[in-house]
């Protein structure tokens, strides 16, 4: 019974921690102050109600008749499937998702878009956050190393991808190239000369043996 509360507590904690790491987001959060957004995911037995003030409070509402009456109190109510959840990151897609029938929205669309923008535009200086615990030098070195590692890794991945792509797109070789034919002919000529010389030498040896007898 308390699973919903555990989930909502976890989401609430995570959201507010993230918001605290970006002081500039307070302006965007203020625009949503006093609003409520309810998100019902078809696969879950609860709806999540986000209440915006100086922070975000998350409630888990069980889906029964009594709560259904409560649902109408939210400024915006979104109903969607679990697979569509990740598409909400891009607020410009909301209208498209509604048209595709993947998302049902009742109420003020600006609340949903505002929340989406709030999370999307979070700009957290992770190096600064780490420096609070490790000091500036260690934080800078750590992030430089990590950045360098990821840049190198990205380059390697790009190179491998290019090679793989070439391998896949290059037509299968069905005949030898001219240069390979020339090389082969040259080698045959050398072999023929060598065998002629050998034959002449053998003939010479046989002749000299017959003379001795």
């Amino acid at each position: 019974m308390l699973v919903g509360q555990l989930l909502s507590a976890g989401i609430e904690l995570a959201l507010n921690q993230l918001l605290q790491l970006d002081p500039d987001c307070q302006g965007r959060l203020k625009k949503l102050s006093g609003k409520q957004l309810q998100v019902s995911v078809n696969e879950l037995p609860w709806s999540l109600l986000f209440t915006f003030s100086g922070q975000i409070d998350v409630s888990a509402l069980e889906r029964n008749e009594e709560q259904a009456a409560m649902e109408s109190s939210a400024d915006c109510h979104i109903t969607l499937g679990l697979g569509t959840l990740s598409d909400l990151k891009d607020s410009s897609k909301i209208s498209q998702l509604i048209q595709q029938g993947k998302l049902d929205l009742a109420g003020d669309i600006n609340v949903a878009q505002g929340f989406s923008n709030l999370m999307k535009e979070l700009d957290i200086d992770w190096e600064e956050q780490l420096s609070k615990y490790t000091g500036d030098v260690v934080a800078h070195q750590t992030f430089s190393s990590v950045k360098s590692f990821f840049t190198s890794a990205q380059q390697e991945i790009d190179k491998l991808a290019a090679q793989f792509s070439t391998h896949l797109t290059q037509p299968e070789a069905v005949a030898v190239k001219p240069v390979e034919v020339d090389d082969f002919c040259e080698q045959v000529n050398v072999l023929r000369s060598a065998s002629d010389r050998l034959e002449a030498r053998i003939d010479q040896l046989i002749a000299s043996q017959q003379d001795d007898q």
């Binding site: 509360q5 409630s59 888990a60 009456a69 109190s73």
Partner: peptide, 18 residues
């Protein structure tokens, strides 16, 4: 720490709104 979840459940059942 479970008292926090009991209290959350109470608030969730309260139907409180603006």
């Amino acid at each position: 720490g479970i008292h926090r979840l009991w209290k959350r459940f109470t608030i969730d059942c309260s139907g409180a709104r603006a």
